[in-house]
Amino acid sequence: MTMREQDHLEETCLICGQQNVEGIHICNQLICESCQKKIVETDVTNWKYKFYMNKLAKLRIGQSQQTVTPVVIQAGAAGEADKH
Rank of each mutant, 00 (worst) to 15 (best):
M1W: 05
T2W: 13
T2D: 14
M3P: 10
R4N: 13
R4Q: 08
E5W: 10
E5V: 11
Q6N: 12
Q6L: 14
D7N: 15
H8R: 13
H8T: 10
H8M: 14
L9I: 12
L9K: 10
L9T: 06
E10F: 07
E10R: 13
E10L: 12
E10H: 10
T12M: 08
C13E: 01
L14K: 02
C16L: 02
C16A: 02
G17R: 05
G17V: 00
G17L: 05
Q18H: 12
Q18M: 05
Q19D: 12
Q19R: 14
Q19E: 13
Q19C: 09
V21T: 11
E22D: 15
G23H: 08
G23S: 05
I26V: 15
I26T: 12
I26A: 08
N28I: 00
Q29E: 10
Q29M: 06
I31M: 05
C32I: 08
C32A: 04
C32V: 06
C32R: 04
E33P: 00
E33S: 15
S34I: 13
Q36N: 08
Q36T: 14
K37D: 13
K37A: 15
K37T: 14
K38Y: 05
V40I: 15
V40Y: 09
V40H: 13
E41P: 03
E41T: 09
E41C: 08
T42K: 05
T42C: 11
T45C: 08
T45A: 08
T45K: 10
T45M: 08
N46I: 03
W47F: 12
K48M: 02
K50C: 04
F51Y: 13
F51N: 08
Y52H: 00
M53P: 01
M53F: 03
M53C: 07
N54A: 03
N54Y: 06
K55D: 01
K55M: 04
K55Y: 00
L56V: 01
L56I: 09
K58Y: 00
I61M: 07
I61Q: 07
G62W: 00
G62N: 08
Q63P: 00
S64I: 01
S64G: 07
Q65F: 00
Q65G: 04
Q66T: 09
T67H: 06
T67S: 11
T67I: 09
T67R: 05
V68T: 04
T69I: 10
T69V: 11
T69A: 10
P70H: 01
P70G: 04
V71W: 00
V71K: 09
V71T: 09
V72G: 02
I73C: 05
I73K: 05
Q74I: 11
A75V: 07
A75D: 04
A75Q: 11
G76E: 04
G76D: 09
A77L: 12
A78K: 12
G79F: 03
E80I: 10
D82N: 15
D82I: 15
H84S: 14
